[in-house]
């Protein structure tokens, strides 16, 4: 089933893992602190004043770009193998 989607598989995995883990954190926060789902998610994306969260966001973005690049690489490799 993945064969037709194969060409974007790294990006797909990236988004799946990324959103899955964030969701998991939000759910755990909901459970422990008895907050609403909206509160937890907004807490995740709120940038704290003075913290260096920019760094990690930049790294995650770099990971996303890397995954797109490696998808491109896989596709190129596959094309050259076919021809």
């Amino acid at each position: 089933m993945l064969k037709n989607r194969m060409i974007r598989v790294v990006t797909f995995t990236f988004t799946m893992i990324f959103s899955g883990l964030l969701l998991m954190i939000a759910l755990i926060d909901m459970f422990i602190w008895q907050q609403s789902f909206y509160q937890c998610v907004s807490k995740l994306f709120a940038l704290d004043e003075g913290a260096n969260e920019g760094y990690v966001i930049a790294t995650a973005a770099a990971g996303f770009i890397y995954s797109i690049a490696s998808d491109y690489r896989i596709r190129k490799k596959k094309r050259s193998q076919q021809s």
């Binding site: 194969m6 598989v9 995995t13 990236f14 893992i17 883990l21 954190i25 995740l44 990690v56 790294t59």
Partner: peptide
């Protein structure tokens, strides 16, 4: 992921570990 997605895990090392770096900060306030 290699088993589920059917691609060599080396492609996934950098993207996934960068997520880990992000999540480790976001995991709690």
């Amino acid at each position: 992921l290699e088993h589920i997605m059917n691609i060599p895990y080396r492609y996934l090392v950098f993207p996934v570990s960068m997520i880990i770096g992000y999540i480790a900060i976001q995991i709690s306030a």
